[in-house]
Simulated scan of single mutants.
Amino acid sequence: MVDRLEQAELDAIWNFDDPVASADRFAAAAAEPHRPELVRAELETQRARALGLQRRYDEADALLDLLGPATDTLGVRVLLERGRLRNSAGRAAEATALFEDALDAARREGETFLAVDAAHMLAISDPERSERWTAEAFDLLSGTSDPRTLRWSVALHNNRGWRLFEEGTPVSALAEFEAAVDAARAYGTDEQRFASEWTVARCLRELGRIHDAERIVRALADERPEDEAVAAELAALTDATHTIEP
């Protein structure tokens, strides 16, 4: 009998595009009587997260209250999900304090995956120290060889890239977006790879490298002809300004 929640099972249950169905699946999984109590409780933290994605913040908090006082890995998950609820509700300072506690607790428990999750969330909730938290997440990743944990590098490079893009430094952003593509090809899902390649094309357009961008986007369009973001990017490229770069 598995006495802890495996990330592979979470991946199979989660559909972030459909939090309602995800919440139902987590509730059903947590109700299965053969599961150890700790695993059922961890599943409930994910149901709380799915409720939060529906903006049902009070219900999610009440559900997390039922799991306390939580310690060990469960405690880390409760801190993370409370932080996500606060961040989604626009209470960034409270979220940051919870994510810092989650990061410290995950480090103590040797939970690298959850520690990276906490650092990644800190980079979002605490934008003034975003680079510090992102660097800390990458430092954590440098100590693991687990492919599923290394998948975090896709989001970390992507988020850093968009921050640089929005700060008006697209050359630096492009390097991060390209690193996200490499990470997605090595460790990520096909959806992450597709999205990362689209992002590279978007940045190339910003730099005026229209031919390079169009080559990527047309390949993506061949792969998914009905994708609206790809179609929109192709349309934008037809009116974009070229540079003299090849």
Rank of each mutant, 00 (worst) to 15 (best):
V2I: 13
D3R: 09
R4Q: 15
L5E: 08
E6P: 04
A8L: 10
L10I: 15
L10D: 10
L10C: 12
N15S: 12
F16A: 12
F16M: 10
D17T: 08
D17V: 00
D18H: 04
V20F: 11
A28W: 03
H34V: 14
P36F: 00
V39P: 06
E44N: 12
T45V: 05
R47C: 04
G52L: 04
L53W: 11
Q54I: 11
Q54Y: 07
R56K: 14
Y57H: 12
E59T: 11
A60W: 01
D61R: 14
L64M: 10
D65Q: 13
D65L: 07
L67D: 05
P69V: 05
A70P: 08
T71V: 12
L74V: 11
A89W: 01
G90F: 09
A92Y: 07
A93N: 08
A95C: 09
A95N: 05
A102Y: 01
A102W: 01
D104T: 15
G110E: 12
T112W: 05
T112K: 06
T112V: 15
M121W: 09
L122Y: 00
A123L: 03
I124M: 11
S125I: 06
E131P: 00
R132S: 06
R132C: 00
T134W: 00
A137F: 00
A137T: 02
F138T: 08
D139S: 15
T144C: 10
D146R: 09
T149I: 12
L156Q: 02
L156W: 00
H157W: 01
N158I: 01
R160M: 02
E167Y: 02
A173I: 06
E176H: 10
E178C: 05
A180V: 07
V181D: 08
A183F: 04
G188A: 08
G188L: 03
T189E: 10
D190P: 00
R193G: 11
E197A: 08
R205T: 03
L207P: 07
G208D: 06
I210D: 02
A213Q: 05
R215F: 07
V217E: 02
R218S: 12
A219G: 15
A219Q: 14
A221F: 09
D222W: 00
R224C: 03
E226Q: 13
D227C: 06
A229I: 10
L234W: 03
T238N: 12
A240R: 03
H242S: 13
